[in-house]
């Protein structure tokens, strides 16, 4: 899937929106609250078209509809020390400034996620630059700033620590962790390792406790 193009989804039937007809305050016979089908002016496309033309009066609707979905995407694309709420705010401001680039008929959420991912990567690069600068200041040795992950952030320090600790485990323990990590259940693992399923479960948790202690030691 190309990163530069919004995701396309299956064709969906057009949503139907109902507009409550205005009430005439001086008309006692006016309908009160009846709903009649009219037009879809609250769709993502409609709000984006209005935003592109300078009218952001309904932008809050768009935010309320999609911000909950945006946050996991941002969290997946930057380290925890980055201010994720700040990234979300940058994302939404970019949505406003780039509203004219949005293609009606495409998936707005996917387009939003691309902007959010890029904002998360920018924030990660900035954080890494800052960390590198601090390191240069402290030991006069600078590391190159590299961040070229196309999608998703993997913490290199945690990854290296985990790999190191897993390498220190006995082969049998590594096998249990690996097989559980492939969605094999305790019953199947127990059969091949000639254990009881409950012992297998117990061992797994013991191994994870030791692994955690080892990782904490390496990261500290």
């Amino acid at each position: 899937m190309s990163r530069d193009r919004p995701l396309k989804t299956e064709a969906k039937p057009p949503p139907v929106t109902f507009i409550v007809p205005p009430l005439a305050p001086d008309d006692p016979n006016a309908p009160t609250g009846a709903l009649v089908p009219l037009r879809d002016t609250n769709s993502d496309d409609a709000i984006m078209a209005e935003t592109a033309s300078g009218d952001t009066s309904k932008f809050g609707v768009l935010w309320a509809r999609h911000n909950d979905k945006l946050m996991p995407i941002i969290a997946s694309n930057c380290p925890s020390e980055v201010d994720r709420e700040g990234v979300a705010q940058d994302t939404w401001s970019n949505v406003i400034t780039r509203a004219g680039q949005y293609e009606p008929g495409s998936n707005f959420a996917a387009w939003l996620f691309r902007i959010g991912t890029n904002a998360a990567h920018d924030a990660t690069r900035a954080a890494k630059r800052e960390a590198a600068k601090r390191k240069r200041d402290s030991d006069e040795r600078g590391d190159p700033v590299e961040f070229d992950d196309p999608r998703g952030y993997v913490d290199p320090d945690l990854l290296a620590a985990l790999q190191g600790c897993l390498g220190e485990l006995p082969e049998r323990s590594r096998e249990i962790v690996r097989r559980r990590g492939e969605n094999e259940d305790n019953q199947d693992i127990a059969v091949t390792l000639t254990l009881s399923p409950s012992r297998c479960s117990q061992l797994y948790h013991e191994i994870l406790r030791n692994l955690r202690a080892c990782v904490e030691g390496k990261l500290s």
């Binding site: 996991p72 997946s76 992950d149 998703g152 993997v154 913490d155 945690l158 990590g181």
Partner: peptide, 22 residues
Amino acid sequence: HLVGLQLSRLVTELAAVHGAQR
């Protein structure tokens, strides 16, 4: 985890266990 905020961490852990590359 797919709809949550810790997927990055989970992927890191699984990638370490399986030696996975992108």
